[in-house]
Design a protein around this nucleic acid. Structure first.
Lengths: 172, 172
DNA sequence: CTATTTAGTCAAGTCACTTGTCTACTGGGT
DNA sequence: ACCCAGTAGACAAGTGACTTGACTAAATAG
């Protein structure tokens, strides 16, 4: 935060306003912060509600983050732990719960007898598909209001300022 | 991962509204979702780290959400509870902790002997100021990359699609 | 072949929440 | 004035998702 040059290094035109003035009022900053948190909450809550409505009502939002990693393939408990930012013990408990509820199976790792490969069951895939549909529906709503170009601009702008991370659940 | 649905789901809707047709690919949706969650996490973690570095290292991010409400003035424990989306008991415990650590005081409510008005101490205000500075610095960084106009556009676009809420901590 | 690291689980402790219960105070109704 | 349902808040106990600690078994280095 605020490292290096406060001088502009951007290629966009912004000389119309004094760049040394405040980067937005306190109220504006607070509003943007509230909007970003609200957007994230809307996303997570919306997907969670849709998934629950689709019959998968024994899951919490953070389970979806584990699904995202497992669906990528070649996943172990340790991978889930690192992805979610929790201990291996916590990931092990979470995986055990998902296996007990029929969302995934654990099979021996072909090349390492200590590890176990996690694979989604049909139910797990159905749940993932429901989450994808809910997310697409939400984005469709946004596109209906803003237009696809502005949604794309939103994505592009955020990509330039947000450090890419492993898409882990919020921890606060 | 993608074996679930190669189906394109070409809806019957014609180009009556080109903006509502295809909301974007699954990868794009996922990317935007990841960016929004990442932005929220960056914000919260950044502010929390800056506040801790300023000497207020005995606070958790969710305390900041309580500060935001209390700083607005005329706040009771029940207000904090509603604002944070937790029970009154949880809010009471949180307030007790903040009072014990010297961030706020509880004084009798002038018009209701049951209630107690919460007020930030000098330390509480200093902490709030540190959080504001950190937030402003982060926004300045964003403005340095995107330009002030695009940050404003970000705020305006999000305001159109995100339902306004009480700025409460994430619960997932 | 021994020593160290790694994957995963079992067990117990932690802590921010919850529900349940209580007191004290408010305010409206008859 | 009184009664009484409703509200503000705190105390106590329980819950559950996490943690640290200890352990087994298997891979890997030397």
């Amino acid at each position: 935060m605020h490292d290096g040059e406060p001088r502009k290094a951007a290629d966009e035109r912004q000389e119309t306003e004094p760049a040394t003035a405040d980067p937005g009022s306190r109220a504006d900053n607070l509003a943007l912060a509230a909007l970003l948190l609200g957007a994230a909450a809307t996303l997570v809550d919306g997907i969670h509600a849709a998934v629950a409505a689709a019959g998968f009502d024994d899951l919490r939002p953070s389970h979806g983050f584990a699904f995202a990693r497992i669906a990528a393939g070649e996943t172990t408990v340790g991978d889930v732990a690192e992805h979610l930012g929790v201990t291996k013990q916590a990931a092990s408990q979470l995986v055990e719960e998902l296996a007990r509820k029929g969302y995934l199976t654990r099979r021996p790792h072909p090349g390492d007898a200590r590890a176990r490969l996690l694979e989604l069951t049909a139910r797990g895939w159905a749940c993932t598909r429901a989450a994808d549909l809910a997310m697409a529906a939400l984005m469709e709503d946004w596109a209906a209001v803003l237009g696809r170009k502005r949604v794309a601009a939103l994505r592009a702008d955020l990509a330039r300022v947000v450090p890419s991370g492993p898409l882990r659940p919020a921890a606060w």
